[in-house]
């Protein structure tokens, strides 16, 4: 009996138990095969529940489990490293008719993926504050900032930070309709999302694209509070290096 047949039947509950599988009486092992079927579905659903706790709170446990059952059969993991399982969930939610009325869900899932990626990202020592403070304005503007491997930027047309917060922190204010950008920083071991102004979102997007500080400031526009953004980055260990092209 080929593993291809076994796999197909594992993932499809409507599929017949493959032939040649026996219980202790030598009769076809339908009940026994169901144990493996259950192990696969339950363990992958648990991996998604662990990875997307806020999405689960928003959708409800029962709905989330049903959605996970559909997702894991369409997108079983492609790697045994399950800490990153669920990367296709945002795109899946975008196309999943039962949640078409909740268009912010894909970005909420992206935020939870970003928190998980940040948790497992490489460690990097922050750039000493004195290094930045010691630069002339001219050199600072020409430099490119190397950002921490654990830093993630999410820019959403939805109030995704407020929705996340309202479902993870007691007494958080209810979300109000607005586009939101947020920055995930990991000062020590625990990733923390921070709400950004739209201008700071543009500034960080330009830095992440490898632009020098001057170009990032142009992208951010006159509303941007550079001092506040740098203070946030410094507190969260977000800047880990400096690249000066011409020196």
């Amino acid at each position: 009996m080929s593993q291809s047949v076994f796999r197909t039947a594992l993932l499809d509950p409507a599929h017949a138990t493959p032939p040649g599988l026996l219980d202790r009486h030598g009769t076809p092992a339908t009940r026994r095969f169901a144990v493996y079927r259950n192990n696969v579905a339950v363990s992958l659903t648990a991996a998604l529940e662990t990875g997307f706790p806020v999405l689960r709170r928003v959708l409800g446990e029962e709905f989330f489990a049903a959605m996970a059952g559909v997702f894991l059969r369409m997108h079983p993991p492609t790697s045994p490293v399950l800490m990153f399982y669920g990367a296709q969930l945002p795109d899946f939610l975008h196309e999943f008719p039962p949640v078409a009325h909740l268009p912010y869900l894909p970005d909420l899932a992206r935020l939870e993926l970003a928190l998980r990626q940040s948790y497992h990202a490489a460690d990097a020592a922050p750039l000493p504050a004195a290094t930045l403070a010691g630069l002339s304005a001219e050199r600072f503007l020409a430099a490119r900032l190397r950002l921490a491997p654990a830093l993630r930027l999410i820019r959403s047309p939805w109030p995704v930070f407020s929705i996340w917060r309202a479902n993870s922190v007691a007494d958080a204010p209810p979300p109000r309709m607005a586009a939101e950008s947020l920055l995930v920083l990991r000062p020590d071991f625990d990733p923390e999302p921070h709400l950004l102004t739209p201008a700071a979102g543009s500034f960080l997007a330009a830095l992440l694209a490898g632009e020098p500080v001057a170009q990032a400031l142009t992208a951010a526009g006159p509303q941007h509070d550079l001092a506040a953004t740098l203070a946030l980055l410094r507190q969260g260990g977000g800047i880990v290096g400096l690249v000066e092209d011409d020196l």
């Binding site: 009996m1 593993q3 291809s4 076994f6 796999r7 594992l10 993932l11 493996y36 192990n39 696969v40 363990s43 992958l44 991996a47 079983p76 993991p77 492609t78 790697s79 045994p80 399950l82």
Partner: peptide, 17 residues
């Protein structure tokens, strides 16, 4: 045991003949 087939990982220790 086996746990992967055809680029999918099934997260269980599956039996062998």
């Amino acid at each position: 045991a086996w746990s992967s087939h055809d680029n999918s990982f099934l997260n269980d220790l599956l039996p062998l003949p």
